[in-house]
Design a protein around this nucleic acid. Sequence first.
DNA 1: CTAGGAAATATCCTATAGGATCTGAATATC
DNA 2: GATATTCAGATCCTATAGGATATTTCCTAG
Lengths: 225, 225
Amino acid sequence: MASPSPLPRLRRSTLGDDVYETITALIMEHTLAPGDRINIDALARQLEVSATPVREALARLESDGLVRKRALAGYAVSPLLTRAEFMEMFDMRLVLEGAAARWAAARAGTDTKQQILREATDIVAPAPEGADGWPAHAAFTKLDAQFHQLIAGAAGNPLLRDGIARLHAHLHIHRLYFPFAQMGTTAQEHQRIALAIEAGDEQQAETAMHDHLNRARERHLAAFG
Amino acid sequence: MASPSPLPRLRRSTLGDDVYETITALIMEHTLAPGDRINIDALARQLEVSATPVREALARLESDGLVRKRALAGYAVSPLLTRAEFMEMFDMRLVLEGAAARWAAARAGTDTKQQILREATDIVAPAPEGADGWPAHAAFTKLDAQFHQLIAGAAGNPLLRDGIARLHAHLHIHRLYFPFAQMGTTAQEHQRIALAIEAGDEQQAETAMHDHLNRARERHLAAFG
DNA sequence: CTAGGAAATATCCTATAGGATCTGAATATC
DNA sequence: GATATTCAGATCCTATAGGATATTTCCTAG
């Protein structure tokens, strides 16, 4: 037997890391709903840890923008976006994801481009068991996020990828409040983006991404009454 | 006497907030240099606080990207950017600050536009006491950052402003390692940006900002050998 | 019934203590 | 001399305790 590859490090995380991930998930799943006060002591009891790692996790989440701190009064989940904030976020998406599409068209390798095309196609048939309504919507939302995340990664700039991820975390929290997606229309929009990226056409990729985002914005605006 | 306006809240921050700001300043001033290990206990002793608010401040700074954590081994100041990272950061600046210039041209009010013009002019005479060399460089760097920050604010999108601020924090850490600025050239570039913004010419504002950033990139590349 | 104040309780924040793990120096082995 | 092992001390992480502050509840006066 040749020399074995080194064993993977068994553990390089702490309780604080676990708590951070747990709280993030609680927020994403709306167990901690937007605007909710976060009771540190109660949460620590539920998680069966002391308040110390909970506080540290919340400090990180504050800088992530997912929670807000009021000194001496504790933390709360960041509220749902106002209509104005929603518009600002889409403006920012236009800037960042437009650039991501452009750079992906310029830089992505063949394998990645094929994967982007596959993801654009997969979105049409998201529900594996003929599910309908909310489960279909959830599956679609997940695939939509994967598609955008894939392009963000394909752009080849970690700062851009992280910036888009931050926006998507906020967007994800809002998914319960958005109207059910129009999957056919979105799929076509995704495919136009993917085809432009595959063709290496930077300008067309950006235009298609802008088109998609602007239409998504209009679709989502119904949630703001 | 009409009803008095409510008195300002006397204090709405905690020791942890103070520690966060102190550590940020230590990093910005290179008292904690890039790559340095951060000894939590020693730092807590120096600051005459317990380790608790220090750990919380570091948790926030981790999410800010200014420090990195290695579980069970503690924190270190994020290292200086590699050449590749520096290039990625400038690509990101082109995207974000290009958009900021465009939006500022479209949205800024007359007062703000005048202020932008003033700041572009002020950068020519940064040293109040005929100082030379490093103090002039420091003063220039500060005014340069103010100019960019002003435009980011004038863009009217808080997400964009925050994104640019994050980039600038990283850039600021590197200022000790960059060549002395060519103030005359930079002033001209700033003025071109400011004039385009004042004129409300979005495209020209973005082009001028791109031009400025690309030239700044070239000037700074000497620091990478 | 409403408003204001006081008291009780809960929560937040920080210091301290202690166990787990890491780091670096000293020592042993080849 | 180079490398591996051991060990002591330092450091990190988390739990606990206690004081400060905020929030909630209760009571009283108008």
